[in-house]
Simulated assay, not measured.
Amino acid sequence: MPINLSINRIQRSHIESWIKRLQTLDRGDGRERGLAAGTIKTRFNNVRAVFRAAVRDRLIATDPTDGVRLPRTRRTDAALVLPTSNQIAALLGAAAPRFRPFLALCAFAGLRLGEAAALRVSDIDFEQGSVRVSRQVQRERGGGVEIRAPKYGSERVVHASDQLVSLIKDYVATYRPTGDADRWVFEGDGGNPPHQNTVGYWWRLTREAAGCPRLRLHDLRHFFASGLIAAGCDVVTVQRALGHSSATVTLNTYAHLWPSAEDRTRLASARLFADVVGRSDEPLTNDEAA
């Protein structure tokens, strides 16, 4: 339960209790999983900024956040789970027809759960082959949904493949055929877009059927990012496609997936070698023989 105290009465023990509650927070689906260590750190830093400002303004003598220990974060390369192409294929094959385009938007356009759930048909440009991300769904405590702007810097247009656009087009024609361009692409209860619990239920059914019980839906977004990097896309391109607020966020998450200088040198050497060996039977030109 929240405790209302004036800022000069808040002690370090209050901050530590708050951090502990965040680690066992009920996210609304009946399971106490808590927030991720990175999310807790972000919230803590916001609170700390308030106390430090209060110290500078001499409203309080000391900062109660000093010395508070935060949950340890795992190294990105250790924590990141990248689904294989076989796993993605199994998930798409096991998904119900109404859920398959949702998974495809996560795996081949990098959309977050809330972003995919909040898509309107008008957000899909079927002619130009693009998906506009301009809102997200958040679950309300009463079980309803709230439509809000996406995370800071996440508004974007994702240039989608012809195959993905075709999949969504066929889905809309079959399951959302009314002429209203502002209708939701995916529908939950009461004509609203689906919220996290609904999508989570669909996801759990699909991953169990596909034999991928440990994958998270968010891992499909990582699959998309890794595919862009493997195709040679630079940091800024990946940042914009994923809707990260800065290239630093992209690098902090995926830097280990980009080839190192040694990798690029080795690849360049291999290409030179193959080019030379491939010409071993060709005669020298007059200039080369001179």
Rank of each mutant, 00 (worst) to 15 (best):
Val235Gly: 00
Val235Thr: 14
Leu242Ser: 03
Ala241Thr: 08
Ser85His: 12
Leu167Tyr: 00
Ala54Thr: 02
Gly227Phe: 08
Thr198Tyr: 03
Gln23Trp: 02
Ser161Ala: 06
Arg100Met: 13
Ser154Phe: 10
Gly144Arg: 09
Asp263Ile: 09
Arg279Asn: 09
Gly179Ser: 09
Ala181Thr: 09
Gly114Asp: 02
Asn45Ile: 08
Leu267Lys: 07
Ala89Gly: 02
Asn45Gln: 11
Arg72Pro: 07
Ala37Met: 08
Pro83Arg: 01
Gly38Val: 14
Asp182Trp: 08
Arg69Glu: 12
Ser161Glu: 06
Ile19Ala: 06
Arg100Ala: 12
Asp182Cys: 08
Trp258Gln: 05
Tyr201Trp: 11
Arg33Pro: 06
Ala230Asn: 08
Val172His: 03
Glu155Cys: 13
Leu228Met: 13
Trp203Thr: 03
Ala225Thr: 07
Leu272Gln: 07
Leu242Cys: 06
Arg264Gln: 07
Thr206Asp: 04
Ala104Gln: 09
Thr206Gln: 03
Trp203Arg: 03
Gln136His: 11
Ala116Trp: 00
Gln136Lys: 10
Ala95Val: 08
Arg207Trp: 04
Leu217Gly: 01
Phe273Glu: 14
Phe186Lys: 01
Arg240Gly: 04
Ser17Thr: 06
His159Gln: 11
Gly129Tyr: 03
Tyr152Phe: 11
Ile60Gly: 03
Pro2Trp: 00
Ile168Val: 15
Cys106Asn: 06
His218Val: 08
Glu155Ser: 14
Ala107Ile: 06
Glu288Leu: 09
Asp29His: 10
Ala173Phe: 13
Leu91Phe: 07
Leu103Gln: 01
Arg98Ser: 07
Arg48Asp: 06
Pro193Arg: 00
Leu5Ser: 02
Val50Thr: 14
Glu127Pro: 03
Ala230Tyr: 02
Thr73His: 06
Thr84Met: 06
Pro194Met: 05
Glu262Tyr: 10
Asn252Cys: 10
Thr76Arg: 14
Gln163Asp: 11
Gly153Ala: 08
Pro101Ile: 05
Glu16Lys: 03
Leu92Asp: 06
Arg21Met: 12
Leu25Asp: 12
